[in-house]
Nucleic acid binder design. Sequence first.
DNA 1: CACTTTACTGCAATTTTTCGCAATAACGTT
DNA 2: AACGTTATTGCGAAAAATTGCAGTAAAGTG
Lengths: 141, 141
Amino acid sequence: MTHHTLDYANRIRQQGYRLTPQRELVLDAVCEGGGHTSFDEIQRRVQARAPAVNRSTIYRTLEFLEKLNLVVVAHIEGRTLYEIAHARPHHHLICSRCGAEIEIDETMLTPAYDRIAERTGFVVHADHLVLSGLCGECNAK
Amino acid sequence: MTHHTLDYANRIRQQGYRLTPQRELVLDAVCEGGGHTSFDEIQRRVQARAPAVNRSTIYRTLEFLEKLNLVVVAHIEGRTLYEIAHARPHHHLICSRCGAEIEIDETMLTPAYDRIAERTGFVVHADHLVLSGLCGECNAK
DNA sequence: CACTTTACTGCAATTTTTCGCAATAACGTT
DNA sequence: AACGTTATTGCGAAAAATTGCAGTAAAGTG
């Protein structure tokens, strides 16, 4: 129940939106499993509990949750995957050879952010980047 | 004609693929304008010259050109955009407030890559990242 | 707790994207 | 320059994603 710590209910209501069973179900579905979840998997989980929930509602709900920063989207090798938004932004390394996924902390990128701010004035606020490359093992070969 | 310098023709043929008029047209269409181009715009440009080219062919051709690293895809605020792949990798900063787009060189990120390699062994090989944040002007406000 | 407002959902229709297959044409070989 | 191989295209159909709208229900108010 990772998302319970976020107090999503208030976060939704305080902005004038409504907390509906559908929204709770989709949020739960994104949480389950912890990592990246595909749309089909989300639909499967939601409809396992409430078969009547419409597919288009799930599309709209994910878009909504993304807008509220409760869910983040990643495009990994053409696939669109969803993940619950963590309080602390983090990023992913994906090995283009073996597919391994490594999670790294935001702080790994701050040296680059500093350089960018210094030279362009732009303050990066990137959450949930996906960087591809070669992991240590594959690189050794 | 930015892409002519890439000698795309040989790059395609040397891998056992064929150079077709459709592929040239799509490549030209992605080049025109220089920056990011939407699918519909690409279709419009292609069909302006060859109306018979099928929409599904354009889908497949873009996928193909991406596989050969002649075209790169970016997901910016939900939209899927295409751009010609440059010899030198670069990245984009997008201001989430005013929408301004700034192009930055790969070297801006190398401090972060170094840190990542140092701590995880992972060698990042990211091309064409999209980082959001606030540009200098918007940040001042 | 009933009432009102209007954000949200489900449904059906539309649009976008993908897929299978037969016909076509690129390109190496003769 | 004609021929054969087979990658590629166009077409139609299927699947996926989006949208409009009328009915439903969440949440504030009396």
